[in-house]
């Protein structure tokens, strides 16, 4: 099983956000995309998550162009992938309902209605995978609590549990720990490793190089919409081939403007004097 972006490009008006980028992930592999804010990491993840189609290039699932599939076939592929965003984006509902959301949308309507009625009359039975997912992020005891009352760290862990509860083959994580304290970051990274051990492929977009070094099998450095270099963490962080990678690793590339979630706001990254 492989999810890949092949020579993809995306532009918003005159701004090219991604330019001829190719990157893929396989089962049981953690691929990290690093680079300054606003260089196209989020846009790349949203392409892999099929939020939009690339202007050029293809997104492939096991070498099949997903945008050449029918809507139903593409939905089936989408449902083998899940995604966690920089903000947890939880629903105003108990944690258990948040975590089981992905499972519910995969069920036939009759079953969904039946479960909704059972839930209304107080049946809060958790499925095994939802229970496992909450246990993985250490929040099984919060299952009945309203998700909006959780702390930022707990909320992000619930978002990760929600993504794991559907037994995905690929998980896409967009800056998953940018708002987390060190303890919650450690819990999340441990959960990522456990997911990888279960054969889940993970793509993480981050500008936290230490995190990338800790969790990655492969790292891609993206700069100004181009994938500059990919390789194992030892190569990227110790002996990079490209001077821009070295400048980024050495902290010499400035982050000037944040990229929005849809990549429309452009930035101007620059080399510090």
């Amino acid at each position: 099983m492989t999810l890949s972006a092949a020579t993809v490009s995306v532009s918003y008006g005159p701004d090219t956000v991604l330019n001829d980028v190719s990157l893929g992930v396989e089962a049981g592999e953690v691929v990290t995309v690093v680079g300054p804010s606003g260089t196209g990491k989020t846009t790349l993840l949203r392409l892999l998550g099929m939020f939009r189609r690339p202007d050029d290039g293809t997104i492939t699932w096991n070498d099949t162009d997903v945008w050449g599939l029918s809507e139903t076939e593409r939905l089936a592929v989408r449902r083998r992938i899940s995604m966690v965003f920089q903000e947890p984006s939880l629903f105003n509902a108990p944690v258990a309902q948040n975590v089981t959301y992905g499972q519910r949308v995969r069920e036939p309507w009759r079953e969904r209605i039946r479960k909704s009625i059972r839930n209304l009359v107080g049946d809060r039975t958790l499925s095994e995978s939802a229970r496992d997912a909450l246990d993985t992020v250490g929040l099984l005891d919060k299952a009945d609590q309203n998700a909006l009352s959780l702390s930022g760290g707990e909320a992000q862990r619930v978002a990760f549990a929600r993504a794991l509860a559907v037994d995905p083959e690929i998980v896409l994580l967009d800056e998953p720990s940018s708002n987390l304290d060190p303890r919650n970051t450690a819990v999340l990274e441990d959960a990522i490793r456990r997911a990888r051990e279960r054969g889940v492929g993970v793509v993480v977009a981050t500008h936290d190089m230490n995190q990338a070094e800790r969790i990655s099998d492969r790292v891609g450095f993206i700069y100004d919409g181009k994938l500059v270099e990919t390789g194992p963490p030892s190569q990227i962080f110790d002996t990079p081939n490209d001077s821009r990678t070295k400048q980024f690793v050495d902290g010499e590339l400035m982050y000037d403007v944040e990229e929005t979630t849809n990549g429309q706001a452009r930035k101007s990254t620059s080399v510090s004097p």
């Binding site: 899940s82 965003f85 939880l90 929600r162 979630t261």
Partner: peptide
């Protein structure tokens, strides 16, 4: 986005 990303 979260609903879509979860397969909605």
């Amino acid at each position: 986005d979260a609903a879509f990303a979860m397969g909605g």
